[in-house]
Amino acid sequence: MCLTMRKKDNQVYTQEGGIYHEKQSRELCALHALNNLFQDRHAFTKRDLDNICLTLSPEAYINPHRSLLGLGNYDVNVIMAALQSKHCDIIWFDKRKNIDRLQLDNILGFILNVPTDFSWGVVHLPVYRKHWIAIREINDTYYNLDSKLNAPQKIKDVLVFLKEQIESKEKELLLVVSSEISEAGTWYQDNVVTQERVE
Rank of each mutant, 00 (worst) to 15 (best):
H32V: 07
A33I: 09
N35F: 01
F38Q: 11
R41W: 00
A43G: 03
F44T: 02
K46F: 03
K46Q: 14
K46C: 06
D48L: 07
D48I: 10
L49P: 04
L49Q: 09
D50Q: 15
D50P: 14
C53F: 08
C53D: 15
L54R: 15
L54H: 15
T55H: 09
S57L: 06
A60D: 13
Y61N: 10
R66T: 14
S67K: 02
L69W: 04
L69P: 05
L69G: 10
G70M: 04
G70D: 04
L71I: 12
L71E: 14
N73V: 01
V76Y: 07
V76A: 15
N77S: 15
N77Q: 15
I79D: 08
I79F: 03
L83I: 04
L83F: 08
S85C: 05
S85R: 14
S85D: 10
K86C: 06
K86R: 15
H87G: 11
C88S: 06
D89S: 13
D94W: 01
K95G: 12
R96A: 14
N98L: 03
D100F: 04
D100N: 11
D100Q: 12
L102C: 07
L104W: 01
I107L: 12
L108D: 14
G109H: 01
F110A: 08
F110P: 00
L112R: 04
N113M: 06
N113L: 06
V114L: 13
P115Q: 12
F118V: 12
W120G: 00
V123K: 08
P126E: 05
H131W: 01
W132T: 00
I133G: 08
A134R: 06
A134K: 04
A134M: 11
I135G: 01
R136L: 05
N139M: 03
T141N: 13
Y142M: 05
Y142E: 11
Y143K: 05
N144C: 01
S147G: 09
S147Q: 05
L149H: 15
N150V: 08
P152W: 00
P152V: 11
Q153I: 09
Q153G: 04
I155D: 04
K156A: 13
L159Q: 11
